[in-house]
């Protein structure tokens, strides 16, 4: 008798509860999670544009929300999510073109994406804070 699916269950994908995280798997799910977060930030971008179109009163209200400590924390999160998703996306485009598939290259590009995201987030905020200081 040939074995039926009930005799021999099909293999399952890795069970994340007992699966040791690696850079590859963490960055893979991070690309999805930052994508979902950026979808929410995209809605915030539309709200910001609508407030600017509505006039100075609405714009000032939205700007004060962004300027609050929670607003700034969320904006910092947005900056990091954006750069991590951007770097992750560029890795994916390289893989789609057939490059960077060796284990060595995958880890090198992965750590580069992490380091670049942190560096670009820090750079963006330092420049922003310096320019905001000059404007006031």
């Amino acid at each position: 008798m040939p074995s039926t699916p009930t005799d021999r269950p099909r293999p399952l994908s890795p069970n994340i509860q007992i699966y040791r995280p690696q850079l590859t798997s963490v960055l893979s799910i991070a690309n999805r999670m930052t994508g979902v977060a950026l979808a929410a930030y995209a809605v915030a971008l539309v709200a910001w544009l609508v407030s600017a179109a509505a006039g100075p009163a609405a714009y000032t209200t939205v700007q004060s929300l962004i300027g609050s400590w929670l607003g700034r924390l969320l904006l910092l999160g947005c900056t990091f999510c954006f750069f991590l998703h951007l770097c992750g996306g560029i890795r994916h485009l390289a893989w789609d073109a057939g490059y960077g598939f060796s284990l060595r290259a995958i880890y090198a590009s992965g750590w580069t994406a992490v380091a670049m995201s942190m560096t670009l987030t820090a750079l963006t905020w330092v420049v922003g804070i310096v320019l905001a200081g000059h404007g006031q």
């Binding site: 600017a52 560029i90 994916h92 006031q136």
Partner: peptide
Amino acid sequence: ERVSAVALIPLTLWFTVSTVMHAGDDY
């Protein structure tokens, strides 16, 4: 998804740089 990703690389970088350049500016 990839065509839009390629388009978003320059567009999002333009937006990020532009908003940073306008940090602290009035209405």
